[in-house]
Design a binder for these strands. Structure first.
Lengths: 163, 163
DNA sequence: TTTACTGCAAATTCTTTGCAACAAC
DNA sequence: GTTGTTGCAAAGAATTTGCAGTAAA
């Protein structure tokens, strides 16, 4: 497990900028890295409120998430639901996302060929890429299957009603 | 010019859904299609407020933009600045965007090979794509050039100061 | 005349901030 | 002791909504 290692990096990061390692920050850090799912600030706040430990306010959650992003310990992504979603950068490198509109599930994908084509497109326009945002919106495997089943059921019942 | 044609389509769209073609809606439609740039709801509202014509409230601007999206006359895109940006769908097909963080300029690009690779990625995960969002964030040609010049100037002046 | 639409202001949602009390260092 | 942090509640920013009056059809 390299979570201990990255936590040390976080502590060093704070020290270097003369920031303090408060119990709240430690708790937020631990909780955020304890999950491998994506979560919103509100969800993280809920977890912290329900689980035992020092009180952490919503404001501190937001402030610490910004801090973690500045230090490149976490990334935020806009999945188009009005709220930001966070993920830690423990290990896994760059990737893009597929967001299920039904259940909210987020899948990751990566294709180096797409990255290359992006660079090519940017070069053509003289554009200097700093970052990019690429997400596919639709239905994950299980929601897609469910929808197809429902559509079929509806079709059958319509046919029955018409007969 | 096919703007007249698409306007008729909009009128038909309203009629079919027993909605009314109010002077406000007509004005918003005309103004939105009169530009080939991307704009936010607020900017459109400003245009309408300053230019002569019937009064249009902010609420109506928002409501009409939603309506235009529902009817596929316009698309909205989230450029990551907290507000939505709109573009009409007059003619030009699907494309993605490059957003300049310095000047806000938005460039369009399209590469069918990227579209294919997206489909391939989705297929692998059993994901059913409904839409996607792909944007490159960085500096447009002129802002990029300006930044490079500034960086060089700063470097030169630092060197001079140190000597 | 009926039904939809508009403007207004209040409400919402997510996120940020000012400030006084407080905890790291 | 300093200096940075926290919690709270108020402030923001973009967008939506309830309602009473107004204008299309």
């Amino acid at each position: 497990m390299k979570q201990a290692e990255i936590k040390r990096a976080f502590e060093g990061y704070l020290r270097r900028r003369s920031l303090k390692l408060t119990t709240q920050r430690a708790r937020i850090f631990d909780r955020a890295f304890a999950t491998h799912e994506h979560f919103s600030a509100e969800v993280l706040y809920d977890w912290l409120s329900k689980e035992p430990g020092v009180k952490v306010s919503r404001a501190t959650v937001y402030r610490t998430l910004s801090l973690l992003q500045d230090g490149r310990f976490m990334k935020s992504l806009d999945v188009g639901r009005g709220e930001m979603v966070y993920e830690h950068v423990l290990g896994h490198g760059h990737h893009d996302h597929m967001v299920c509109t039904d259940c909210g599930r987020i899948e990751e994908f990566h294709d180096e060929r797409i990255e290359d084509l992006q660079l090519e497109a940017a070069r053509k326009k003289g554009f200097e890429i700093v970052s990019h945002d690429h997400r596919l919106i639709g239905y994950c495997r299980s929601c897609s299957a469910k929808r197809k089943k429902d559509a079929t059921a509806a079709h059958v019942s319509r046919a029955a009603a018409a007969s």
